[in-house]
C-alpha cells in the first residue's frame, strides 16, 4: 500500500513539475526553423510547422542595417543586428496562418508561419 502511495506521489510530483517548468526549458527540445532576412526579403517567406507543439525560429540577418522581426499575432518583437542570429521561442499554436514582418522596413514583404 505504501509503495502505491510512493508511486502516486512521484507521478503527481512529476506532473506538477512539468506544468511548473519554465517555457524555455520545455522548448529546449523544440524543433528549430530558420528564416534569413536578406536584400529586403525574408527567405523562406513562409514556414510550415506542426500544430500544438512549441518550436523555435532562428532569424538571421544579412541586411546592412538592423531589422525588427515582429508578429502581432504571435506577440513577438525582436531587433536583429546585421550579421546576427537570434532565437525566437514560439508557443504551441493552433492551426492557422500567423504573419510576421520587419517593422523597421515596412516595404519588406510580409512572411507567414503556417501551422498545420
Amino acid at each position: 500500500m505504501r509503495f502505491v502511495h510512493v508511486v502516486a506521489f512521484s507521478a503527481a510530483m512529476a506532473a506538477a513539475s512539468s506544468m511548473l517548468m519554465p517555457y524555455g526549458t520545455q522548448a529546449a527540445d523544440a524543433p528549430a526553423f530558420t528564416i534569413k532576412a536578406e536584400g529586403g526579403h525574408f527567405s523562406p517567406s513562409q514556414l510550415e510547422v506542426a500544430a500544438n507543439r512549441p518550436f523555435k525560429v532562428l532569424v538571421i540577418s544579412a541586411e546592412k542595417t538592423p531589422i525588427e522581426f515582429e508578429s502581432f499575432e504571435l506577440r513577438r518583437e525582436r531587433v536583429v543586428k546585421p550579421g546576427e542570429t537570434i532565437t525566437v521561442n514560439m508557443p504551441a499554436l493552433s492551426p492557422g496562418t500567423y504573419k510576421f514582418f520587419d517593422d523597421f522596413h515596412r516595404d519588406t514583404p510580409e512572411g507567414a508561419i503556417v501551422v498545420k
Binding site: 517555457y23 524555455g24 502581432f72 504571435l74 506577440r75 513577438r76 518583437e77 525582436r78 531587433v79 537570434i86 525566437v88 521561442n89 514560439m90 508557443p91
Partner: peptide, 19 residues
C-alpha cells in the same frame, strides 16, 4: 502593438518582453 492583458505571451520569449 502592446497588450498588457496578454503579457504572459511576451514573457514566453524573454527577449521580446525585455524589448
Amino acid at each position: 502593438r502592446l497588450n498588457f492583458s496578454d503579457w504572459i505571451s511576451y514573457t514566453a520569449d524573454p527577449a521580446t518582453a525585455s524589448h
